[in-house]
């Protein structure tokens, strides 16, 4: 995106919202306050003839810190926003369509209505783009049960309600109850997780949404805040704490390409190409149950190099799977 494309919408917003604070502008834009000031500072040479002092776009911060009011000067002609560019219309459409696939029933109905209102208001190419059937990014639609669960959990997050969860733990291989303070629903890879403080663990945890059997809001509100920093990245973002071990698995040439597809460039993960097309994958092992299932799914095409203790878990899981077929 061009510099012009970044700055003009900010000018539109500020010109139309005189008296807005730096904090609210940051909320509206998703930019940091210092980024906003830097963009406004870049406008100091912009203005219109005859270039008297009041012909230059300027701004003042009235007050201190993020609560300061932005007083944008001599830019009234920018107050009406420019029409969406095709790229902006597409970005909005794609975000709405993607969001709808996991939206709760209420949000879904609101979204459909919103899309209709937008399509009616816009003109020309923007309207044509919004009305097109193509979704851009198509993900599987969540079931009604999952969307209802997302609705319940969203209500809990919004209201800061403590929630009792009935949850199938992959670690323990059984259902249990957890009392949690939910912070956010997070999409990571192919899954949705509830990010929450778990009283049982005494730490934050990520709960796979489809493994929540029931979520019941209590009548207690919580004041917990999520940790200031969540680690980014696929593994680190989901599994907290220190890895229990290091998992090294060697895959046959048949399984190698799929493993490379899935694990290339993953953080904390290495792939080593071996002779004949075999592949060795090394990654931190947080969850033995997950690791055993992962290895098991490749059958004879995966061999555990380390840790040795995981071999027993795989054998046990394979036996359980075979026994279930008798």
């Amino acid at each position: 995106m061009t510099r012009l494309g970044q700055i003009v919408p900010l000018l539109n917003f500020l010109a139309a919202n005189q008296g807005v604070t730096l904090r609210d502008t940051a909320r509206a834009t998703g930019l940091q306050p210092q980024e906003i000031c830097a963009m406004l500072d870049a406008l100091t040479l912009c203005g219109l003839p005859p270039y008297a002092p009041h012909d230059y776009i300027g701004y003042r911060l009235l007050g201190r810190g993020d609560d300061a009011v932005i007083d944008l000067q001599y830019a009234r002609h920018f107050a009406r926003p420019l029409a969406f560019t095709p790229e902006e219309t597409l970005a909005l459409k794609y975000a709405m369509e993607h969001f709808a696939r996991a939206a709760d029933e209420t949000s879904l109905a609101e979204l459909q209505e919103l899309a209709g209102v937008l399509a009616n208001a816009l003109q020309g190419r923007a309207r044509q783009i919004l009305s097109g059937r193509s979704g851009g990014f198509v993900v599987p639609r969540q079931t009604r049960r999952m969307r209802a669960l997302i609705g319940t959990l969203s209500e809990a997050i919004d209201g800061r309600w403590v929630v009792n969860l009935e949850y199938y733990s992959a670690h323990r291989g059984r259902l249990g109850t957890r009392r949690v303070c939910p912070f956010q629903i997070i999409e990571a890879g192919a899954y949705l997780y509830l990010y929450a403080w778990c009283e049982l663990a005494g730490a934050t945890r990520h709960f796979r949404l489809e493994r929540i059997r029931a979520a019941e809001l209590t009548d207690t509100r919580h004041a917990r805040r999520p940790p200031a920093r969540r680690q980014a990245g696929r593994m680190a973002g989901i599994f907290e704490g220190r890895p229990r071990d290091q998992l090294v698995v060697r895959f046959s040439p048949e399984a190698g390409p799929d493993v490379c597809d899935e694990w290339t460039n993953n953080p904390d993960t290495t792939l080593r190409m071996l002779a004949g097309g075999a592949v060795e994958l090394t990654l931190p092992l947080y969850n033995p149950q997950w690791a055993a299932g992962f290895v098991l799914s490749f059958g004879e095409h995966a061999r555990i190099i380390s840790p040795q203790w995981l071999r027993a878990e795989v054998i046990q899981a394979a036996r359980a799977g075979i026994a279930a077929h008798r």
Binding site: P9, N17, G19, R27, L82, A91, Y94
Partner: peptide
């Protein structure tokens, strides 16, 4: 999509006044 999405939302908010937030 981030830059285009951000500017699209900003344009929506620009027409909304502060009550848009």
């Amino acid at each position: 999509l981030a830059d285009h999405l951000r500017s699209a939302l900003l344009k929506v908010q620009a027409g909304a006044g502060r009550e848009g937030l």
